[in-house]
């Protein structure tokens, strides 16, 4: 049973307004049966310092990743995780977090890999909730564990692997990292540790659209016309395009995936979560440097 959608006019222009809720909507709907609020942050302790009342925490690193292989947890693991947190398959899940929902979008994308149907983002995340002076609590909710069905992950629709990217070369690629990472001056975001990639630059032909360009000043998403100007205008995407987005490990590009798919309405968008830490370390893959996209390499 889905909780009613946020029908506020600010989301109405987006292709899938049902994927967003506003802070006002959430404040009014807290405690509604069938609604579970999930916080997912970069900082693993931020939830403990205070969170939205009733929210449960899901940590991308320690809970959504497989502890051994570089992959996400499997169907049994996801069922155990969600069931243990008292989330049912038909619950409406609203995810929010720090850093303009960067990690919240990542968690949402993983929820969609498992086909959890009704999962939405809180527009603006923690920053907007706090800026509006809304309350936090440190009380951890005691939710009864439930049976979440074991559903195998389906990577085919919204996840791209390295070989898929090879096949994709010539179709639109969006690099959402910082300009310095794109041009090859460095392998990690400014102010982030240099890690995990042996070469710097970008996948040839990828257009540079840093993920945060989709974010408005209040931390929420920009209105449709502004997003159109960036992605359809500057980046030249057209309806019907198949698109792959990537970043360093797939987190920032989940945010862009959300924008392209749910807000702008592109039906075929995949997130390459291997991203630069894989591509930039792989043997004999083509790499372009500098601020220009470069040309399609011979296959």
């Amino acid at each position: 049973m889905s909780v009613e959608y946020d029908t506020s006019s600010r989301f109405a222009d987006y292709a899938h307004p049902e994927r967003l809720v506003s802070t006002e909507w959430l404040a009014e709907h807290l405690g509604t049966p069938g609604l579970v609020v999930v916080e997912s942050d970069e900082d693993v302790l931020l939830y403990e310092t205070g969170h939205i009342e009733g929210a449960v925490k899901i940590d991308w690193h320690t809970e959504l990743n497989d502890p051994v292989a570089r992959d996400y947890i499997d169907g049994a693991g996801f069922a155990a995780l969600l069931g243990g947190k008292g989330i049912s398959r038909d619950d409406t899940v609203v995810i929010y977090g720090d850093k303009n929902n960067w990690w919240a979008a990542y968690a949402l994308w993983v929820f969609r890999l498992f086909g959890h149907e009704d999962v939405r983002l809180l527009d603006g995340g923690r920053a907007k909730w706090e800026a509006e002076g809304r309350a936090y609590t440190t009380e951890v909710p005691a939710r009864e564990p439930v049976d979440y069905p074991i559903v195998e992950r389906d990577d085919s629709g919204i996840r791209a692997f390295r070989d898929d990217v090879f096949e994709h070369l010539g179709k639109p690629l969006i690099d959402v990292r910082s300009p310095e990472e794109y041009s090859g001056e460095r392998t990690s975001a400014p102010a982030y540790p240099e890690e995990g990639a042996l070469r710097a630059g970008h996948i040839p032909t990828a257009k540079s659209v840093p993920w945060a360009r989709a974010v408005a000043e209040d931390g929420g998403f920009k209105p449709l016309d502004e997003l159109d100007a960036i992605y359809r205008g500057e980046a030249g995407l057209v309806d019907g395009d198949e698109i792959v987005a990537y970043c360093r490990i797939g987190e920032r590009s989940s945010h862009t995936w959300f924008v392209l798919h749910y807000l702008l309405g592109f039906d075929n968008v995949r997130n390459y979560d291997g991203s630069w830490t894989e591509w930039g370390s792989a043997v004999r893959v083509p790499i372009a440097r500098g601020s220009e996209p470069g040309t399609v390499p011979a296959k």
């Binding site: 900082d43 931020l46 310092t49």
Partner: peptide, 9 residues
């Protein structure tokens, strides 16, 4: 910053 409690810890 207080938004980075792990780092503060």
């Amino acid at each position: 910053p207080k938004e980075a409690p792990t780092t503060r810890g």
